[in-house]
């Protein structure tokens, strides 16, 4: 049994966590509380008039069919982004972890996209897929006969932002998966090989379960990424269009708040989004984490 130390005074521990608590309070709780407060008002952006409207901002939201559409889109989008980004990163990490020539070169190259700003990533993909002047759009049209027009075709637009957002996140996931793979004891894998387990079996029965803490962490991070941080890509590539096809919740919050200066509605949307992500994280911790072996 390890020896336990006790702080001489009751106040000291509180004092020690105080700086962190101040940061959390000022930058997280305070704005969140303000969003909740503002969501009950109609407000003139200059702060002149504030009309208390109770839950009206919320009821208006839920009455709006396009909001529900945006809801569905966001879930699908976050799920697709998280899956694509994690699956591709895992595959690449497994390949890069093999004893191959120039492994460190590949590793470096694969980490590079992480250094690209999300806004720039959006522009990059937008240019390649621009229906009129984009390289890939041209190739699709002239070599494969696929008419690429994400400006009007909602499925293609959705696909474009999903691919772009996933691509941006692969590098991040790759670093974690690679680190995770390197901490899998080689002896276990070798022992399994001697016992006659093929590469597939070795991966799914030994490596993948041992990676589960990493995978779980990344799952939480990627879902949050899909919901919140892919905003610049949407902004650059589609601006939520065509129609409402890529108007995910966080983008709508930004547009209604910052561009349209409709603070009440924007606040209520961000409260909904906040509850949603808190809920999702709780679900992940309660139900998925049980399957994780640390």
């Amino acid at each position: 049994m390890a020896k336990q130390y006790e702080f001489p005074s009751k106040g000291l521990p509180y004092l020690l966590v105080l700086p962190q608590m101040v940061v959390v309070f000022v930058f997280f709780f305070w704005p969140a509380a303000q969003a909740v407060w503002q969501s009950f008002f109609l407000q003139d952006p200059f702060g002149g008039t504030m009309i208390f409207v109770g839950l009206e901002n919320y009821t208006n939201l839920f009455k709006d069919p396009t909001y529900w559409q945006s809801f569905g889109r966001s879930f699908l989008y976050a799920a697709l982004v998280a899956f694509t980004a994690m699956a591709s990163a895992l595959f690449l990490a497994v390949q890069a972890n093999k004893k191959i020539r120039a492994a460190s070169f590949y590793k470096t190259m694969l980490i590079w996209p992480y250094a690209v700003a999300t806004m720039v990533a959006g522009v990059l993909w937008l240019f390649m897929f621009n229906p009129n002047v984009g390289v890939i759009a041209y190739f699709l049209k002239h070599s494969l006969g696929i008419e690429w027009d994400h400006l009007l075709n909602s499925t293609q637009a959705f696909l474009l932002v999903t691919i772009a957002a996933s691509w941006k996140q692969i590098a991040y996931n790759f670093v974690f998966f690679l680190a995770g793979l390197q901490s899998v004891p080689a002896a276990l894998v070798e022992a399994a090989a001697i016992d006659g387990a093929g590469p597939g079996k070795r991966f799914w029965k030994i490596v993948f379960p041992l990676l589960s803490p990493t995978t779980f962490y990344l799952l939480v991070m990627n879902v949050v990424y899909g919901f919140f941080e892919t905003f610049p890509i949407i902004h650059q590539a589609t601006q939520g269009g065509p129609g409402q096809a890529t108007n995910i919740l966080v983008y709508k919050v930004w547009r209604d708040g910052v561009v349209n200066l409709d603070l009440g509605s924007s606040s209520s949307q961000s409260v909904v989004l906040m509850i949603l992500v808190i809920g999702l994280t709780i679900v992940q911790f309660r139900f998925i984490e049980r399957k994780v072996t640390y």
Binding site: L151, L152, N153, S154, G240, G241, P242, G243, Q244, R255, V259, N260
Partner: peptide, 12 residues
């Protein structure tokens, strides 16, 4: 914004 969105839906 409403006009843009609806115009795209018209064209589609």
């Amino acid at each position: 914004e409403i006009e843009d969105q609806t115009w795209e839906d018209i064209l589609a």
